[in-house]
Design a protein around this nucleic acid. Sequence first.
DNA 1: GGGGACGGCCTTTTT
DNA 2: GGCCGTCCCC
Length: 747
Amino acid sequence: MEPAIQPDYLSGLNEMQKQAVLHTDGPSIVVAGAGSGKTKVLTARIAHLLKEKKAAPHQILALTFTNKAAAEMRQRITDVVGNGAQALWLGTFHSVFMKLLRREANSLGYPAHFSIYDTDDSKSLIKQITKALDLDDKLYKPSVILGRISHAKNRLIQPEVYAADPTYQKEDAYMRMPKFSEIFLRYTGHCLQAGAMDFDDLLVQTHKLFHDHPTLATKYQQQFRYLLIDEFQDTNLVQYRIAKTLAAHHQNICVVGDDAQSIYAFRGADIHNILHFSHDYPNHKMIKLEQNYRSTRHIVDIANHIISHNAAQLKKKVWTANPVGAPIQVLRARSDMEESQLVVNQLLTETLNNQLRYRDFVILYRTNNQSRNFEEALRKQNIPYQIIGGLSFYQRKEVKDLLAYLRFVVNQNDTEAFRRIINFPRRGIGPTTIDKIFSIAAESARPLWTVLHDLNDFLRGATATAVSRFVTLIDTAKQTNENAYTIAAYIAKASGLLKELHEDKTVEGRTRYEHIQELLNSIKQFVDQPENNDPSLGSFLQEIALLTSADQSHVHEDAVTLMTIHASKGLEFKYVYLVGMEEELFPSAMMLGSQADLEEERRLFYVAVTRAQLKLTLSHALSRYRFGKLTHVQPSRFLKEIAEHTTAQRATKPAQSTATAQSIKKSKLGGSMRKIGRAAPAQSSIGPTALQVGHMVHHLHFGSGKILKVVETAGMRKAVILFHKFGEKTLLLNYAKLDILPIIEKA
DNA sequence: GGGGACGGCCTTTTT
DNA sequence: GGCCGTCCCC
């Protein structure tokens, strides 16, 4: 064709980005600073592989950490290459390997439609085990046990190996959990028997599959010609090993990550994987993406300063050609309640003055429970908002109840599903009976379902009838062989679940009833999808097992977003409010113990700050309700770290404070580079009278422009400004945040 | 076996 | 301040 013309997906890439896209063969590592166009590079790379016919879609494996990131990538690739993108192996680690395991489950002794245990199921199972072992659950807390199991699994330590290792035994004795390895063994055995995998199993079993069945490993090694891994700094050992195995044949593995944004050590992510990679692939090419396209210079600078406090980091210098932008602002409130009001009031003012949409704003916090005050404040002002995180639709009790029925219809070995539904809605089967059923199954080594069919051997009277009805209900559903929707609708009705909720006339009851209807609708939608060639119940359950609340469709077109910092990774917003900047909250009290933990918190701070495109506002309160008690709290050490830096850079001038009626203190931080213009009052960047016709100015949202006219009406000064990118706008000088640019305009 | 009252406990972040 | 588990009585 015409070699001189670049394909579309390459235009608009800088030199380094282009290199990352075009270096397709052999191992490579892309160190991508925040906002450096990482997703753009990944999608361009895949588009390039497809366009150049280096691989068919099903020969490319691309792994991300969230469904959202995967969906966005798939969409962008589709935009370039069309429907071919559908056949890509692209998704989260968990979902991709679930799909693979489903195909190969039989080799591992699992049914193809294995159940997936979520955290609640796992904890409930652990509780059963500690009870059976007659252990005190004050000492053996299910959540702690699960955490340890998960940690061991992610480091590929088998329970048998764990049990035989004196080092681990000592550790457990020290933690006053000498029986931990016994629990671990039983837990794993139980999952296998129940035909269930927990989240970690989706990775661990994949690893085991390739390890135990070299022919299968070879099959996939040959299939996947190109491997891409996003957010590589967040991979744990199992994930790395799987990736390494899959890349063994073709060696075309490209990992993209940023050590400064590693925030998942608590769930086993190992920043050393970056080092392992360099070691395992000595001939790799390293490409650094250091230009930030997302944020103002103030924001990029402050981010760099934050990370410079960490000892452990890869050298890289993130910079930007963007304008300086607004200073970083700090709001101080007397109480947590006041903090939320301050933030929401300022947010509202900013939407109005800068002609912004609500969706341009995000409120970020360290812990989910902080959302509460902000929700109230937003509701009071009638501002639409959406909360990401917290409880997802599929985690609601009533939804999980119906899903448990469906799980049990698919897999009668799923004991956790069974426990959940055997007496809900109440049908007169109490703990005594349930214990009896389980102990008979254990003694006679028969599957649960067989025992339940022989119930007349050990049950009499009303209880026997009740259990028998339950068995018939499941059998009927099982034998219909219908699609997911038909079975679900039958179960919802025949189990009495719908009736139970329908009779509850409280507001909550109505909502729960609606949720069940909503679930049924979504199953119907799933079944009716034209491209769906497996509308079975098992297929539906696996489809939804890995969805999180972040994957829900947005209710509002235009709403303020609230979420944890963790959930915000990979996203960007024009205005970011980072709230609760207090000691023991952020950094979290749990993370003050070690240098490594504290550095992870600081990286979290870095992630939060780098979400902002135009303006970053931090806030903290002096008192906060904790455990229902009012407590005094100290400003976060992170605030001090950046404050010191800014004063050092900004000569002698102390942080300026303006007491207002609400006793707000706003101090300006940031401003590391020589500022264009000069230090300005907190509210608007520059006094309105200083502006004159002919001045070049910079506006946060509209960019640079020239003042054409200054008019005064009703005591308000307005300016007509011709912006380079947005054309003519009339702005109120009292509010508009304008910086005067030097006359010789240069960005 | 079911339902209501009380007390302890908590709080990190998530696929 | 709220959830969950336990205890106690019907």
